[in-house]
């Protein structure tokens, strides 16, 4: 039975081989899939599209070999790690003719200093979303998440890097700290905060804030924009102590067997009309100035999604902590198990 099935499927699979195939590996629900169809039509190729839930899932699959992904879209610190592990292929930037559309201050960042390996796909910040009917104080600092007035009304992120990062910022340190004393201090702060926290959430937080189950939450800007659309009382703030600036960039892993087509795809995704459609669908911020011009003013004028340039200076991008990751993990476990 199985052999018969194979006998039927195999010719079918090889039957398509005269058409080129592009393997794309992306976060779940992070692309307007009609864009993929357009690429297939325009370049007469077939796209095999697969998704992952975390950066770590993705790197494991690429590292282990056996896959042949041509394009992946990891986050900043993961790109740094992949460069260090030599899992990425250099992109021939001459072929990314649309690269000039990418906003200057979102280029050449520490994780990929000369953008030799990656082209920005989406970007954003981390901040506090709060319900104006439930919070009377001015929200402009991470301190408010430690304010006892809001006991049981605070949602923290169930993500070690983010939660420890904002605590380090509140204490006046870098969110990339590798100083054990600073991290110990952050741990104590998080333990002190725990009784005030209603829940540690990731995606569930969106629905909870919209349903007014909590007053304050730490969220990614892209999610904040979506929440604010659904509940008018919600407001998003990037605290004055600074915050995290994050990127998801397109890369070509060494597993790629067709880097030329991958470059074609990256260039296609950087085309203003395509980037605009994609950004509209996902709701996250596009780094593409051409696309921003095409987007509704209401979207680009929203400081939650597109913060003014002077605010960007205060933001820090995550670096790959390397072996120090286990210290972060330990601290987070201690906080959660407390």
């Amino acid at each position: 039975m199985f052999l018969v099935l194979l006998g039927i499927l195999f010719p079918m699979m090889t039957g398509c081989s005269d058409q080129e195939t592009l393997y794309v590996y992306n976060w779940g629900d992070y692309i307007d899939e009609s864009v993929l169809r357009d690429f297939e039509e325009e370049f007469d190729v077939r796209i095999v599209y697969e998704t992952y839930a975390t950066n770590e899932d993705m790197i494991v699959k690429i590292r282990s070999g056996g896959s042949r992904y041509d394009v992946a879209i990891p986050s900043d610190y993961m790109i740094e790690r992949m460069i260090n592990e030599e899992l990425l292929r250099e992109i021939n930037m001459d072929r990314i003719t649309n690269y000039h559309y990418v906003k200057e201050d979102l280029k050449n960042l520490d994780f990929d200093p000369d953008n030799r390996f990656s082209v920005p796909y989406m970007w954003g910040t981390v901040g506090i979303i709060y319900n104006t009917t439930m919070v009377d104080d001015v929200v402009d600092s991470w301190e408010i998440l430690w304010d006892e007035t809001y006991e049981g009304d605070i949602l923290m992120m169930d993500s070690q890097r983010d939660s420890i990062g904002i605590t380090l910022l509140k204490l006046g340190y870098s969110l990339n700290s590798r100083d054990e004393d600073e991290l110990e201090e952050a741990k104590q702060e998080l333990i002190r905060q725990k009784p005030l926290v209603l829940a540690y959430v990731v995606d569930e937080g969106k629905d909870m804030m919209v349903a007014e189950e909590a007053a304050l939450a730490v969220v990614w800007s892209g999610d904040a924009v979506i929440m604010m659309e659904e509940n008018e009382d919600l407001e998003y703030v990037i605290p004055k102590e600074g915050s995290n600036l994050w990127f998801d960039n397109m890369v070509i892993p060494t597993t790629s067997e067709n880097p030329e087509l991958a470059e074609e795809f990256i260039n296609f995704m950087t085309r203003p009309e395509i980037a605009q459609r994609n950004a509209e669908y996902i709701g996250y911020s596009t780094p593409n100035l051409g696309a921003m011009e095409l987007l509704d003013d209401e979207i680009t004028g929203n400081p939650a999604a597109y913060p003014p340039d002077e605010m960007l200076e205060n933001l820090e991008v995550f670096q790959d902590p390397g072996d120090f990751l286990s210290v972060y993990d330990r601290i987070w476990t201690e906080v959660k198990a407390h």
Binding site: V60, D158, Q160, V197, A199, E204, D329, T333, K336
Partner: peptide
Amino acid sequence: PRLLGGGQLMLIGNLVEQQFSYVGDW
């Protein structure tokens, strides 16, 4: 524990999951 406990309680299953999907320490 993640959904109904709101991540307030860390159980052994969460610890395992954390190692695999966030820390990458298989």
